[in-house]
Deep mutational scan, measured.
Amino acid sequence: HNLTITQGKLFFHYNPKLCLSEIHKMEEVSGTKGRQERNDIALKTNGDQASCENELLKFSYIRTSFDKILLRWEPYWPPDFRDLLGFMLFYKEAPYQNVTEFDGQDACGSNSWTVVDIDPPLRSNDPKSQNHPGWLMRGLKPWTQYAIFVKTLVTFSDERRTYGAKSDIIYVQTDATNPSVPLDPISVSNSSSQIILKWKPPSDPNGNITHYLVFWERQAEDSELFELDYCLKGLKLPSRTWSPPFESEDSQKHNQSEYEDSAGECCSCPKTDSQILKELEESSFRKTFEDYLHNVVFVPRKTSSGTGAEDPRPSRKRRSLGDVGNVTVAVPTVAAFPNTSSTSVPTSPEEHRPFEKVVNKESLVISGLRHFTGYRIELQACNQDTPEERCSVAAYVSARTMPEAKADDIVGPVTHEIFENNVVHLMWQEPKEPNGLIVLYEVSYRRYGDEELHLCVSRKHFALERGCRLRGLSPGNYSVRIRATSLAGNGSWTEPTYFYVTDYLDVPSNIA
């Protein structure tokens, strides 16, 4: 807008934040220059609390790290170098490059900038070799853009010569660093050979998330399962459950009422301010606690030095998902009996873990797994792929695949051998790939016309006998059925096997 004052003059007093240069501009645009008398524009009460600059400061050096910015700028000295009290560095987070010096300023003089007072450097006698002032900004957020400017702080001049310097606002972004852990990993099994893994992005990506790394490792069953005799009275049979499938998407929606109208769909109840505040506090606490764990609990591995020492970490090797089922080394339970199943799973520490690289999504279907087997899954978020990966501390989750139908069934015939004193040795093959492992066998036998009897055969007993022995049988026709019990439950009964026990007292003698 054009402003013209045809008559009258300007009068400025007691404006401590208004620089004289701005008042002189007002004289020019209003056409009143030359009308004012000496005392109409006070030299001592206008701009006496402001830094009124008329020179431009330029930054000469900028260096960044993930949490620091090192700045240096060209030296500046007023005509009387004693008038320079120091520099004021202003900075704040700036997602967009549209910041002005006066953003967030209120009537009390406060604003949204963080201000650092910096002492002037030592003055050199040689004007050509003056030290460049600077400042190291610490405690910054990774991968965050900051708006920065600097200006001088000078003393009051009796001659009211307006001098000083100020830089333009520059924008500097800190470097990326390792992201925080992925949030809320959930693993479920939808079949006997697959596990579905879902997660949420890290709360602090500290860069642009480029991919996720998912490692999985087959877990050995508890050692007590191999040692305890679950045929003993009072000892509860062990059981394991597989990871249940995901709930429906509708039930997972946030901010939804727990109660549904019987007449149909209901609208979600909005969260109160107290609920939102509580969630923010919980989120802040979780982030602080995660940072504490990362800094205190997890110790970084030592990389190899120039002395030739090897990095103890196993090298990563990509495998196809079809090879995942046989990740671990199978060892027989008892070496003397080769027909026992290889369900003991000690994992070799030198073995390469299978892994998958996930790009542009937060889910993965891990296939080719062994049925009813526990897996430990390790999830890392990465925001750099080359020249070397920059990934987060791992988040861990466990899951067990679903049982395989008929995996616990005894394959092959049940054979028998009759000894003296009416002892019958029953023999059968253990299931080759049971659900988890076989903890015991149930032997059901009966003599024709009598009630059915049951015998429990422990895992250890089966390994020693290759089956079991029935003792003290009365003469007669017998039928026997056997079924295995694994961590997933009972298998199917075998087809009945028949044998006849004679009275050993009636056996004919070869003595003449």
Rank of each mutant, 00 (worst) to 15 (best):
214 V>F: 14
215 F>M: 13
216 W>L: 12
221 E>P: 06
223 S>Q: 14
226 F>N: 06
227 E>N: 08
230 Y>F: 07
230 Y>E: 03
234 G>V: 09
235 L>R: 07
235 L>A: 04
240 R>P: 11
243 S>R: 12
246 F>L: 12
246 F>V: 13
248 S>I: 15
248 S>R: 12
252 Q>R: 11
254 H>E: 08
255 N>H: 15
257 S>M: 04
260 E>Y: 15
261 D>F: 14
268 S>T: 15
271 K>M: 07
275 Q>R: 03
277 L>C: 01
278 K>E: 03
280 L>N: 06
282 E>W: 03
282 E>K: 04
284 S>W: 07
285 F>E: 02
287 K>A: 05
287 K>G: 02
287 K>H: 02
291 D>A: 02
292 Y>D: 03
296 V>Q: 12
297 V>Q: 09
298 F>R: 03
303 T>C: 14
304 S>F: 14
307 T>F: 10
308 G>E: 13
312 P>M: 09
312 P>L: 09
318 R>P: 13
323 D>A: 09
329 V>M: 11
332 P>L: 11
333 T>F: 03
336 A>N: 04
338 P>T: 10
338 P>D: 10
341 S>W: 14
342 S>A: 13
343 T>R: 11
345 V>Y: 09
355 F>T: 07
360 N>D: 02
362 E>L: 10
362 E>G: 03
362 E>T: 12
367 S>P: 10
367 S>Y: 04
371 H>A: 10
378 E>S: 08
379 L>V: 08
383 N>S: 06
386 T>E: 14
388 E>F: 04
392 S>V: 00
392 S>R: 00
394 A>L: 05
397 V>D: 07
401 T>Q: 01
404 E>D: 12
411 V>C: 15
415 T>V: 14
416 H>F: 12
416 H>T: 10
422 N>G: 11
427 M>I: 14
427 M>H: 15
428 W>V: 01
432 K>E: 14
432 K>Y: 12
435 N>G: 03
436 G>Y: 02
437 L>P: 09
438 I>M: 13
440 L>R: 09
440 L>V: 05
445 Y>C: 10
449 G>V: 00
453 L>F: 04
453 L>M: 08
454 H>Q: 11
454 H>M: 01
457 V>W: 08
457 V>R: 14
458 S>Q: 10
459 R>V: 12
462 F>G: 05
465 E>I: 10
467 G>S: 13
468 C>Q: 04
472 G>T: 07
472 G>L: 09
478 Y>P: 01
482 I>H: 02
482 I>D: 01
483 R>K: 12
492 S>Y: 03
497 T>M: 05
498 Y>H: 06
499 F>P: 01
501 V>S: 06
504 Y>I: 06
506 D>W: 12
